[in-house]
């Protein structure tokens, strides 16, 4: 086997040491820092991005919490305002209703008084008409003109009898 020919050993040993040594130096100085640097940069970037995402998420959660708090306050305020407005409206409505009813009652009473007066007046005319009619009827029937007092008395009797 040519591999056991040791006459070439010094050359192989020498060149292996030289080449391997130079390769080692090149790797240590150039290649490994480059590869390791990229890997580290990537892991740093990923970590940074994750941290940033976390902080943004926290911020968003804070904003949501603040928004919900504001919303709750606004809702409470709105219901307060609504409550107050409803109360005021009801009071006003009640007051107006009361005034209107009072007014209406007064008007109704006035109208009833007027109706009663008109009725009384009508009744008084009725008696006069009855007295006159009784006088005229008596004259037509028996040719005798009764005195106004007699006629009136007779009408009163008759109406009292009818009324009783």
């Amino acid at each position: 086997m040519p591999q056991f020919d040791m006459s070439t050993a010094p050359s192989q040993i020498f060149w292996l040491l030289v080449v391997f040594g130079l390769l080692y130096l090149t790797f240590v100085k150039v290649v490994l820092p480059k590869v390791g640097g990229v890997i580290e940069m990537r892991s740093n970037k990923i970590e940074g991005d994750l941290a940033r995402a976390q902080s943004l998420k926290d911020e968003a959660e804070e904003a949501v919490a603040a928004y919900e708090k504001a919303l709750a306050a606004a809702r409470a305020e709105a219901s307060q305002i609504l409550h107050e407005a409803a109360g005021a409206t009801r009071q006003q409505l009640e007051a107006e209703t009361a005034t209107f009813e009072k007014d209406l009652n007064e008007k109704v009473q006035a109208a009833q008084a007027r109706i009663a007066a008109a009725e009384a007046e009508a009744r008084s005319y009725l008696q006069e008409i009855a007295v006159a009619a009784a006088g005229l009827t008596t004259e037509k029937l028996i040719g005798l003109v009764p005195s106004e007092a007699d006629a009136k008395a007779a009408v009163e009797r008759a109406t009292a009898g009818a009324a009783s």
Binding site: S7, T8, P10, S11, Q12, F14, W15, V19, F20, V30
Partner: peptide, 20 residues
């Protein structure tokens, strides 16, 4: 010592250069 450049040396160099 005979340290002449050989085909073995050449392929060591080629391996190192290609790897780098």
């Amino acid at each position: 010592l005979d340290l002449s450049f050989t085909n073995a040396s050449l392929w060591m160099v080629i391996s190192a250069v290609v790897a780098t």
